[in-house]
Write a protein that binds this DNA or RNA. Sequence first.
DNA 1: ACCTGAACACCGTTCAAGT
DNA 2: ACCTGAACACCGTTCAAGT
Lengths: 234, 234
Amino acid sequence: VGEGKRLVDRQRFGPEVVVDAGLAVLDAAGVPGFTMRAVADRLGTYPATVYWHVGGRSQLLTAIVDRVLAEMVPPGPQVLDWRDWLREVAREYRRVLHAHPNTGQFVASVLTTGVTAPELMEGILNVLARAGFRGPRLASAYNVLVGSVVGWVSVELSAPPSDVEPGWQEGFEASLRDLSPEQFPTLAANRDHVVGNVIGLRWTGGSQVPLDAAFEMALDVWIAGLSVQAEPQG
Amino acid sequence: VGEGKRLVDRQRFGPEVVVDAGLAVLDAAGVPGFTMRAVADRLGTYPATVYWHVGGRSQLLTAIVDRVLAEMVPPGPQVLDWRDWLREVAREYRRVLHAHPNTGQFVASVLTTGVTAPELMEGILNVLARAGFRGPRLASAYNVLVGSVVGWVSVELSAPPSDVEPGWQEGFEASLRDLSPEQFPTLAANRDHVVGNVIGLRWTGGSQVPLDAAFEMALDVWIAGLSVQAEPQG
DNA sequence: ACCTGAACACCGTTCAAGT
DNA sequence: ACCTGAACACCGTTCAAGT
């Protein structure tokens, strides 16, 4: 720590190098360990150098999220049915986020104002327009799909706070075993399917225990529901 | 500031009073202003008092989220069709979260491990079982619905970082105006419907500009998609 | 232009001490 | 049991100064 600073040449860093270091720190040390000083340490410099290149913590986080999203390889827009195309984009989004799970807590706020390249937005809008959405309903359909995918994956990846003292998981499971079947009949009848697998009864984040089956079902739900909206039978 | 401490009687606080003060600070000052010291100041005490009653920042946040979710009034389970019942619960969840928008950033991580009362979980599971979901598919359907609702509202409420310098919104809109219609045809054709209204092109959080139409459409999408899953036609 | 070294203000948390 | 007062370690950010 603190060794190795003051190297021979000076201008070793560009913004990309700093962003790479930031992502490495976030991947390795998690959100609590993601610190301007830790990023500087990993580069062998002082915090002010990080500030000079990327300009502050929240801007560094934005750049990191942009970098992660740039790892997405969207499918070609022409070949697939719009339903399959949307399925592939959603799977690809989840794939890159699972590769960097600690990004999940920031991606939503970064994505409100898209600093990223508009190619992906154009692709999704184009495919939804092909499905039949026009004007304000096109905007709503976009928000429905993107909000569902981004939000769902964030919920999946969110982990319980690390404060939890060891052993309370057993106590919590015991308290679930004591639930009265009269008051909670469905919960009691499905306890084995539900404990540890369902939002609200998980002791680990989605990076350790991914919800694969639920995500595939969610894809079917979102696409089927959008299909109904695209061709209203009312 | 700092005035009014050292009052006459000592045991004025309980955990509920501290949690109320924490929620008030979070509502008024936002996430950056939510500080153990600020909570203590609002109570007229020292930080150590807050620690003594609630035991740390993350536990205080968990208690605040629990308190907000306790404001939900779920519909009676018997009267409604399962589709309408789920619609009402989702609307009620969004309502209480919009009443405390700054909670949105924490609710996902708090909800992974449900410290809250299991009544709501029982109600949703019961209604999904009535719709025809059994065993592991019941767990998946639960994760699909809860993850979509919770995640979508979190995305809606997430605000861009406050770092953004004033005036860049105009610059960003200008850059959108310069998008080549050949490269971004759908984006260019729907610019008026999309700019400021769509995830990725918003300059404010969902508490100031709620996405009401998109949420209602999302409800229809989720429920219709779940209906298909409940009665597979394969 | 880019980096050093150090400082400032602030925050989460803890602890000995009081009552 | 509950609160005071102060301290510790740490972090984001800035700034004068170097090259």
